[in-house]
């Protein structure tokens, strides 16, 4: 259990050679071994979604995966959303719509919504709300998060 193994994780296009115990979660590894602390850990039992990252484009709970399972996969985290310092339309929409308060759950919502909009840019409001209900936020009451994602979807569509 405590015997370590060498793996390489690809996070936001950058390779990280790390040495981890097999029991180490992907969330802990991204934060502690790759130093990408934007991914947060809220419950460690897969309910809150604060640790959501994109794994080959799909939103996953990084607290429910072992790091060794993510080797060879493309991992994207909140640190990779802004390109050359320019916020993504989704990040900007979160500012414009006051879609975050404390900001702790926000990276998880951003990755969840990024994955959803990449997969289904025309997602309807009811389905979007259903998808967003997979993550928890205690501050905002969700309305502004839904608004922000809808607004970002419109912006992205206009820019396509």
């Amino acid at each position: 259990m405590t015997e370590k193994t060498d793996i390489t994780l690809t996070v936001n296009g950058r390779d990280f050679a790390v040495t981890v115990e097999p029991r180490r979660t992907l969330a802990d590894t991204i934060r502690d071994d790759c130093g990408q602390t934007g991914t947060h850990i809220g419950c460690e039992h897969g309910v809150c979604g604060a640790c959501t990252v994109l794994l080959d484009g799909e939103p996953v709970r990084s607290c429910l995966m072992f790091a060794v399972q993510a080797e060879g996969r493309e991992i994207r985290t909140v640190e990779g959303l802004a390109a050359d310092g320019a916020l993504s339309p989704l990040q900007q929409a979160f500012i414009d719509n006051h879609a975050l308060q404390c900001g702790f759950c926000t990276p998880g919502f951003l990755m969840l919504a990024t994955g959803v909009l990449e997969r289904d840019p025309d997602i309807g409001e009811d389905e979007l709300r259903e998808v967003l209900s997979s993550n928890l936020c205690r501050c905002t009451g969700y309305q502004n998060i839904v608004k922000a994602v809808k607004s970002a979807a419109a912006t992205m569509k206009a820019g396509r």
């Binding site: 934060r31 130093g35 990408q36 602390t37 934007g38 991914t39 947060h40 850990i41 985290t77 909140v78 640190e79 959303l81 802004a82 916020l87 990040q91 979160f94 500012i95 414009d96 006051h98 975050l100 900001g103 702790f104 926000t106 990276p107 951003l110």
Partner: peptide, 21 residues
Amino acid sequence: VVRLEDAALLTGRGRFTDDIR
């Protein structure tokens, strides 16, 4: 007024206690 706090929190540059290394 939109918030000054947001940009850092949206880009993974928030600094919560467990983020401090």
